[in-house]
């Protein structure tokens, strides 16, 4: 942990130094007749290509291109640096040309999704470790089915053994939907356990209508509710961890394409400067 913190401090220090240097270059350029946008633009494009190359690195794991974790470090801090370079490049103003707005919007979305990805990959990982059992994302539907079958088995057992439909009615009204599909996606994303508390409260409220045997079954069902809730949490968090790349990666390619057009047009219409 100490090593991680030290590394992060060093990286943030380097990032800050580079950002200050970039801002100084921008500021000093405003004091001259030189068009600093050419310089900042090429640097920004270079950084963007480097950041996009991380995806390529993962495509060729067999090539000796360095460890992916190192690439990820450069990708994360390079991405943050690119945001500052971008601000310097657009001179801290909102672009007003159609193509420039498209380009800037793409950059903002790509960079924003990157920041979001960075944040959730840091925070969600901790929550995944802390909440419930760690499961493989692709197996979650199977586990959800198993839990659902287990719960239904208990209900059927109660009906056959106790000759009472109180549990079955309660299950049909409040728990069937919960066990049959993933629930409370956004609650899980934002770390809320309120749905679980509501369910638990209802179960407790229903206990007064149950006899001792039914309460034992209900206790097992309650255990399954907690497991299912944790499984849904894993599903939501892992979906988010995989989902942000649906925005980040495709739009990165779009960004690079539009940036290429931007460069061509800039040199075509540079007006002699």
């Amino acid at each position: 942990m100490i090593r991680f913190r030290k590394r992060r401090a060093v990286n943030i220090g380097i990032l800050a130094a580079l950002s200050v240097a970039a801002y100084l270059c921008y500021y000093l350029n405003t004091l001259t007749l030189s068009n600093g946008n050419f310089g900042s633009g090429w640097i920004l494009l270079g950084v963007m290509i480097f950041l996009a190359a991380y995806n390529g690195r993962k495509k060729f794991p067999f090539l000796p291109l360095g460890r992916s974790s190192v690439w990820l470090q450069f990708h994360a801090y390079g991405g943050l640096l690119s945001i500052f370079l971008f601000l310097c490049h657009i001179q801290f103003r909102i672009p007003n040309g159609c193509l420039e707005i498209v380009l800037a919007t793409l950059f903002v979305i790509v960079a924003g999704s990157g920041v979001v990805g960075l944040l959730i990959s840091r925070s969600f990982a901790r929550r995944l470790s802390a909440q419930g059992e760690e499961v493989i994302y692709e197996r979650i539907p199977l586990f959800r089915r198993n839990i659902s079958k287990a719960a239904e088995g208990l209900i059927l057992q109660s009906v056959s053994e106790m000759q009472s439909t109180v549990l079955a009615s309660f299950y049909r009204e409040y728990l069937h939907l919960f066990f049959s599909r993933p629930r409370y996606f956004w609650h899980h994303i934002f770390g809320s356990r309120e749905p679980l508390r509501i369910l638990t409260r209802r179960i407790k409220a229903n206990n007064r209508y149950l006899d001792e045997s039914e309460r034992e079954i209900m206790k097992n069902i309650t255990e399954l509710v907690k497991v299912k809730y944790d499984l849904d949490c894993h599903y939501a968090l892992q979906s988010a961890l995989k989902g942000w790349l649906f925005v980040h990666i495709p739009l990165t390619f779009a960004l690079l394409l539009v940036a290429g057009l931007h460069v061509l047009l800039i040199y075509l219409f540079r007006g002699g400067i």
Partner: peptide
């Protein structure tokens, strides 16, 4: 499809005379 759509957008902008000027204009 995002790449294809972007490339199509670019070719349309560069090749089409209808909206090209207003789109490639870097600002008012």
């Amino acid at each position: 499809w995002v790449i294809a759509a972007t490339a199509g957008f670019i070719f349309y902008i560069v090749g089409s005379p209808w909206h090209r000027n207003s789109v490639i204009s870097p600002g008012a």
